[in-house]
Write a protein that binds this DNA or RNA. Structure first.
Length: 414
RNA sequence: GGAGACGUGGCCGAGUGGUUGAAGGCGCACGAUUGGAAAUCGUGUAUACGCUAAACCCGUAUCGAGGGUUCGAAUCCCUCCGUCUCCGCCA
């Protein structure tokens, strides 16, 4: 959600910012609505003041009649004000966040810029994860399709446990080493919550909805960030750092035909998420820290990765700046996204009315919110399978850091 | 699922149609008092929007949310959301 005051004062800057997102100037329409709305409000308030003055003047019948006469005009103005306000809010709610100055320009993912690389990819090409998994007999897409359709999978035995081990390992790393508080949040949320983090109104078709009207979370960013919705938190308690391990549900409506094989892109997957709530001053540094937290997970797992900063055309709706971390997949012979770390600035905070206040201060400010995968568990599983694949016996070596979570198991074999 | 009670300011709690943005208390802030503190006394203490260059002032709205009745609603009616109690059911 955008600050109408900013648009009033610096319409050209706002249009320029939206221009980087490939949008035509938005301020003329917005300012027109805003002006009309305020005109209606001002006039309405004048009439209300008039009415109130008569009210305290006495109870004479004549005064009552005069107030009745005001009523029609007031009703008109009130409904006009409401319509204009709704229209204005719809407009503001559907526009993407303003990009940070240091986000590179670019039309699509080709404009993204690599910022660092870690680890050395193995030299050989391995089978893809689904080939390894099916050969082991521990990954079954057919049976999953029978009960649920495309883009679902059944993991069993060693792979099921590996998935659980990965999640445990990530949670322990973030809670014990990175200062995050573990949360077990609701997986079903209401409209307002989805609006707060920006999934609604624009991206409804990407979500699953229950017959009751609840939404299945597409990421635990949604419930974790909304913890502070409608709150005024003391700045001294910031940053708040939350992590959660949850399933995520996505329709993948716009990805028909993409990544149809294997478990790269599923309707349901597990993810360990990190969310931070900060003051406006500290969010930029917090984002760098959060990227580091995600990278630590991959370093410990011993998986080669690169970190890139997304360009203007690839940065998501609610983000001001996003880093993606991509892991090396020797089965595909390329890097694939495993984490996305975004600083949303005050964009989500405005939508969900999340504010902070310095101790003793009178005024409040919107908090800054950040979210990042820490990391996607399903894709981490794939990365482990391919990077730790042993061609000698088609087995998967268990990374050292995961062995305690696997009962000491060193290799997943047939 | 059945029956009932309830939702007022940071908190507790008055208030069933008009001068109530809202008594009283607690808390908090500032001041007085004190060697200092406690106690005591005094003053102040919601948010949003509009107006304004901005601030103050002023205006408007807000008593869970939304709608309705009325000249006028915290107070009456409807819907929804939430909380609590009892019964039933259940992981």
């Amino acid at each position: 959600m955008h600050d109408i005051n900013f648009i009033r004062k610096q319409p050209q800057d706002f249009d320029k910012a939206m221009g980087r997102r490939g949008l035509t100037p938005q301020s003329p329409e917005i300012l027109k609505l805003d002006e009309e709305r305020r005109a209606a409000q001002t006039e309405l308030q004048k009439l209300q003041a008039e009415r109130n003055a008569k009210k305290s003047g006495g109870n004479a019948q004549a005064l009552m009649d005069e107030v009745t006469a005001l009523k029609n005009r007031m009703d008109d103005l009130a409904s006009r004000e409401k319509t204009l306000a709704e229209s204005l809010n719809q407009h503001l709610a559907s526009l993407p966040n303003i990009l940070a100055d240091d986000v590179p320009d670019g039309a699509d993912e080709h404009g993204n810029v690599e910022v660092r690389k870690h680890g050395t990819p193995r030299a050989d090409k391995t089978p893809e994860h689904f080939e390894i998994g099916e050969k082991l007999g521990l990954m079954d897409f057919e049976t999953a399709a029978k009960m649920s359709g495309a883009r679902f999978v059944i993991l069993s035995s060693g792979l099921a446990r590996l998935e659980r081990a990965l999640a445990q390992f990530m949670l322990d790393t973030h809670t014990q080493e990175h200062g995050f508080t573990e949360i077990s949040p609701p997986l079903l949320v209401n409209d307002q919550t989805m609006f707060g983090t920006g999934q609604l109104p624009k991206f409804a078709e990407e979500q699953f909805r229950t017959t009751r009207g609840d939404w299945l979370i597409p990421t635990s960013e949604v419930p974790l960030t909304n913890i502070v919705a409608e709150m005024i938190v003391e700045e001294e308690t910031l940053p708040r750092r939350y992590t959660a391990f949850t399933p995520c549900f996505r329709q993948e409506a716009g990805a028909a035909g993409k990544d149809t094989r294997g478990m790269i892109r599923q309707h349901q997957f597990y993810k360990v998420e990190m969310v931070a709530i900060t003051t406006p001053e500290t969010s930029a540094a917090e984002q760098e820290r959060m990227v580091g937290c995600a990278e630590t997970v991959l370093k410990k797992l011993g998986i080669p990765y690169r970190t890139i900063v997304l360009c203007s055309g690839d940065t998501g709706f609610g983000a001001r700046k996003t880093y993606d971390i991509e892991v090396w997949l020797p089965g595909q012979g390329r890097y694939r996204e495993i984490s996305s770390v975004s600083n949303c600035w005050d964009f989500q905070a405005r939508r969900m009315n999340a504010r902070c206040r310095a101790k003793g201060a009178k005024d409040t400010r919107f908090v800054h919110t950040l979210n990042g995968s820490g990391v996607a568990v399903g894709r981490a599983l794939i990365a482990v399978m391919e990077n730790y694949y042993d061609p000698a016996d088609d087995g998967i070596v268990v990374p050292d850091v995961l062995r305690p979570y696997m009962g000491g198991l060193a290799k997943i074999k047939n």
